[in-house]
Each structure stands twice: as C-alpha cells, then as structure tokens.
C-alpha cells in the first residue's frame, strides 16, 4: 500500500512538470512579457519606459531561462522561469497584479467555496440516487419513461437559466433570500440556500440519467437473477444487491472530484457574489491577472492528481475485488 502510494506520487511529478511547462509556454513564450505589459497599460499609454516600469513592478523584468547578469550571481534561479514557474512546486504562488499575496488569498477564499460545494455534493447525491432508484424500480413503465424525458428536458436547459431564473423568482419576486452576498458563521446559511439548491437542480438531469443507466446495467446481471431466485422481494434485491454494486462506480466517480471542491464553482460563486475561489478565478480571468490564473491552473492539476490517487484507494475500500499494487 505504502509502496503503491509512493509510486503514484512519483508518477504524478512528471505530470505536474508537464502542466507547468505548458502554462509557462502559454504565458511567456507565445506572448512576451512586453506584450502583457502593453495590454495591461492600454494601447494609449504605451511607452518603453512604462513597459519597463510595469515589468519591474510585477517581476517580469528578467530573462526567461538564463540570467548571466544576475545581481545575486545565480544565473538560473534569478529568471522568470524559476521565480514564476518552478516556485509553484513549493506552493509559492507569488503576488497578484494588484500586489496581494495569492497563497494568502487562496487560504482565505477556499472556505466559502467549500461551504457551497460540500452541501451541493451531498444533497445532490441523495437527490440523484433517489430519483434514479425510483426510475429503476419502475423501469419500463410510464413513470420511468416520463422521468427520463424530464431528465432530458432538465439537462437541455442552460445552467445560466437556472441561476438567473432562480435569482429572479426566489429573491426578486418572492424575497425569500438575498440575491447575493456572503457572511461568515451561521448567517451564511441564508446566502447559501439558493446557490446550493440551484447547484443541485442544475445537474439533476444528467446525473440522474447516468445513475439510472448504472442501476439498469446492474439489474440485468446474473447475480440479480440469483437473488430473485432466492425469493427475495424486489425491494431487497434493489437495495441490498443492486445498490451495493451500483454505488461502486458512483462513489468512486465522485472521489475524483472531491479535492476539486476547493476550487469552487465558477459561475455560481460569481453570480451570487460569494467570495470563494471560483469567483476569485473568474475575476482574475476578467482582469487578465495571469499570475492568479497560473496559480489556479497549477493548484487545479495538483488537486486533480490527488483525486486520481484517492479514487484508486477508494476502489480498494468499496470493492472487495480490487487490491492495490498486485496484479
């Protein structure tokens, strides 16, 4: 087990290096720091001096890879590549364009993101599984048929519609909860209800339909026939035999996104004015703050890889057939 973990983490390193090089290429090779400065300053104010000043303020006034003229005498570390890319590996994300420390911002902003993401995940899971089980129970009847059509209709509606419609109906017309904003402590609940609700409803269609397929796939397996031949009722067959098997793909499918919950939901947070990492990212993209985007890309891939490793581990926990490391 330990050897397996070590191996997985070693395998993850090249991937992170790849991500790093890719983003470096996108941000510094395709466009030179000069281009970036020119864009930030606006076309009208561009003077060579202004560009130099901007680059100096933001730490882009160094060569990309090799700096023979380095004052500290370190020709490799005193470069853009080292200060902006390599340092990501020790989670030193540097400063945003407005001078704030990105690492500090991330630690502050991940909590509101989690406050939305975790309830959305849990409530959603409950709702989707219940809905899908109901459809599977009534399979090949009109209830199932109508349920599937409903799911297809729901998944055909743009996510933005759920948000805009929800805000308009619940907040503006019915005045049940505030339109947007955030608070700490228990008062946060009134700000969270609507985004969580919309987050759940937004993916009810696709998820329920997917889970239904998983359930039906299990129901057609031989062991279900064995269970029926024992004289068990359909309820026991579904809840004891089918659910237990179907939960394996469902739960392990969720594990991979667990770490990503930190990153927050971009659209929801931005619409509801929640100061989480999602809205942080969106604001950065809108303000073209490349330092933050780079940091989030790196953080995202680290979390994704953690998710992959957790998935493998979770398989060994829920599925007796799988043992790590061995073949």
């Amino acid at each position: 087990m330990l050897a397996y973990l070590v191996r997985r983490i070693l395998y993850a390193l090249p991937i992170l290096i790849g991500v790093n090089l890719l983003t470096f290429a996108l941000f510094f090779v395709v466009n030179k720091p000069d281009d970036m400065a020119r864009m930030h300053l606006g076309v009208k104010h561009v003077t060579p001096a202004a560009i130099e000043r901007w680059k100096q303020e933001h730490g882009y006034d160094k060569p990309l890879f090799y700096n023979p003229a380095s004052e500290t005498g370190n020709a490799f570390t005193d470069t853009i590549f080292f200060t902006k890319s390599v340092r990501l590996f020790i989670f030193d994300f540097g400063n945003a364009d407005d001078g704030r420390n990105i690492t500090y911002d991330i630690t502050q902003r991940m909590w509101p993101s989690l406050a939305i993401a975790i309830p959305t995940l849990l409530v959603g899971l409950l709702v989707y599984i219940t809905f899908a089980m109901t459809l599977a129970f009534f399979r090949a009847t009109y209830i199932d048929y109508a349920g599937v059509i409903l799911a297809v209709v729901l998944m055909s509606i743009s996510g933005l519609f759920y948000i805009i419609g929800g805000q308009y109906l619940v907040s503006k017309l019915l005045h049940l909860v505030p339109i947007s904003g955030y608070a700490t402590g228990l008062t946060a609940i009134k700000f969270l209800i609507l985004p969580v609700l919309i987050g759940v409803i937004g993916s009810i269609g696709s998820n329920s339909r997917w889970y239904r397929t998983i359930f039906l796939e299990e129901i057609n397996k031989d062991y279900v026939r064995t269970a029926r031949a024992k004289g068990l009722s359909e309820r026991v067959v579904l809840f004891k035999h089918v659910l237990k098997n179907a939960l394996i793909p469902i739960l392990t499918g969720i594990v991979v996104i667990l770490p990503m919950l930190f990153m927050g939901n971009l659209i929801l947070e931005s619409f509801f004015g929640v100061p989480g990492l999602g809205s942080y990212t969106i604001d950065a993209i809108r303000q073209q703050d490349f330092a933050i985007v780079r940091a989030m890309v790196f953080l995202g891939s680290v979390l994704y890889i953690i998710g992959l490793i957790l998935t493998d581990i979770s398989y060994t926990i829920v599925d007796p057939r799988i043992r790590l490391g061995g073949s």
Partner: peptide
Amino acid sequence: RDVRGSRIAMIFQEPMTSLNPVL
C-alpha cells in the same frame, strides 16, 4: 416469492457471474 428459493431452488450455468461480487 415464498415458493422461490424455498420449495423450488435454482442454480445457473455461469457460477462466475451468478454470485453477488460485493457480498
């Protein structure tokens, strides 16, 4: 259901897939 498994029991061709893998 009271008959199945009690008065008449059945075994199948594929023992590999006829048992629930997670129980």
